[in-house]
Design a protein around this nucleic acid. Sequence first.
DNA 1: TATAATGTTTGAAC
DNA 2: AGTTCAAACATTAT
Length: 243
Amino acid sequence: MEGPSLVILSEELKSFVNKRVLDVSGNSKQDILRLCGRKIKEIKSWGKHLLIRLDKFSVRIHFLMFGSYRINEKKDSAPRLSLACKDGEINFYSCSVSFIEEDIDEIYDWKIDIMSDEWDEKNIRQKIKKGKNSMVCDVLMNQNIFAGVGNIIKNEVLFNLHLHPETLIKDLSSRQIKDLVKEARDYSFKFYEWKKIYELKKHWQIYRKSKCPRCGFPVKIKPTGKGMRRSFYCTGCQVKYKK
DNA sequence: TATAATGTTTGAAC
DNA sequence: AGTTCAAACATTAT
């Protein structure tokens, strides 16, 4: 689940804010019973984290690759964490649950969350320029730079910029780095809009495609970078730049 | 049915 | 001591 999906989830959970947790269950190994009786003060996301701030501490949910949730519904499988409030319940499945004792505003840097109002392009450009020998595919997936960007966004952004995923940062011009930061942000908001109307897959141009929509060349699939996450790229129009 | 995939943490090995 | 990397975790559509 990528950043924009977490923003959608936080919005779907708005009605739980200012509600008290009346019942807790789930197969999480954490001490989830401490949630019982606590009041939900705020629900927001940072990157791929869902953050539920309560009156005494916060809960962090990470969906990793397979996590899912249901609001006022249940799946057949056992929830990792289930929270019941007065007028509804939230069920989280196969996700990572952890507690945060500190004030989340102290430990999360909102300026690097791709969906945040505090997103700071200049700051991101500076961070990117520190890793001259990194590949652009790794930089986009780096949660300490582009918190919330996942493999779909990575592939689509690189396609839109005509960039080969293995291009090194030192081979990009300042202009290209500026465009990279801008496009990652812009595409994430398109992702958000499309996902809300269930049209996400419809707009994929390169991710899981076999033929380039721009030039008709075959799409190459290759695990790239240190992360070795799958890159889908056009063998014709996504070039490895040399400054 | 086997495979692959919107991801990260952990801890062993070097 | 710092880096690297495989393993673990876990689900479901194709």
